[in-house]
């Protein structure tokens, strides 16, 4: 009995030291993503079941959408033939002018298995990691639009920050006018394009694409559409509120660009 009392301060000290080591490890991003990797299977199970149940309950809408898509496919096939001709001609002309052939992008498909725990929805967890070729800094898209960038990558799991995250900055240009600006995430408005020149002709409905200038994001990825334009607080620039092309709150699948 006396021995257990003598050992009590030592035990407390050991517990305290273990807590400090554990907390300092959690401060490390690598440890955090390794622990998240452990949750990969249950997260995938819960997300997959939820998506499957939702699809079953939306069966009628899905069937109707499928029929409409099949009808559109016929129209698009005709346009595809014209585009293919244009592509061949473009390739021939680029070769004549000595332009270097650009590499085709390669994609890694991934499923979104979790989101930000605070419910603010600006980060996602996907079920692919280093073992599948996904590394930090890779671009994440969905459908035809930009979704975000890989922030942390574990063995079989990765975390990506979305373009609506306040720390996300993307170089963008207005497709019609070629005005450049910085696309920043904003919790209340979604996405804002800043530093547009005052004499810029950007309007509601203009499409915004990635500029590719920073070398981080490939050029030409659709970011979204302008919904309003106003002067910024300083009065030196214009800023545009942009609605993202991708519905980031309902993101279920994503493609990571290698």
């Amino acid at each position: 009995m006396e021995n257990s009392y003598k050992n009590l301060p030592l035990r407390k000290l050991l517990i305290f030291a273990a807590c400090i080591i554990l907390i300092s490890q959690i401060f490390s991003s690598d440890f955090r993503i390794k622990i998240l990797n452990v949750f990969r299977t249950p997260l995938k199970l819960v997300s997959g079941s939820y998506y499957a149940l939702r699809d079953v309950s939306n069966f009628k809408e899905i069937r109707k959408e499928n029929r409409l898509l099949r009808e559109n496919l016929g129209n698009l096939n005709g346009k595809f033939v014209d585009l293919e001709e244009t592509r061949i001609e473009n390739k021939r002309l680029r070769q004549l002018l000595g332009f270097r052939e650009t590499e085709k992008m390669k994609f890694i498909p991934a499923m979104v298995i979790a989101r930000e725990a605070l419910g603010l929805g600006d980060t996602i967890v996907i079920d692919k990691g280093k073992a599948q070729g996904v590394y930090k800094g890779m671009v994440v898209i969905s459908g035809s639009g930009l979704a975000g960038r890989v922030h942390e990558s574990g063995r079989n799991i990765s975390r990506a920050i979305l373009i609506t995250h306040p720390d996300s900055v993307v170089g963008g240009i207005v497709q019609r006018t070629r005005d450049e600006g910085a696309i920043e995430g904003n919790m209340s408005s979604g996405v804002i394009m800043k530093y547009l020149e005052l004499d810029s002709d950007v309007k509601e409905g203009d499409k915004i694409i990635t500029s590719g200038f920073s070398g981080v994001f490939e050029k030409g990825i659709l970011i979204g559409e302008v919904i309003s334009v106003e002067k910024d607080v300083s009065g030196l620039y214009l800023r545009a509120v942009v609605e993202p092309e991708v519905d980031l709150r309902r993101l279920e699948e994503a493609l990571v660009i290698r």
Partner: peptide, 16 residues
């Protein structure tokens, strides 16, 4: 808080 830190992209220790 530690569990939420794992699922979150916030600064570590912040949620704790």
């Amino acid at each position: 808080g530690m569990l939420v830190s794992i699922f979150s992209s916030s600064n570590p220790g912040f949620n704790l």
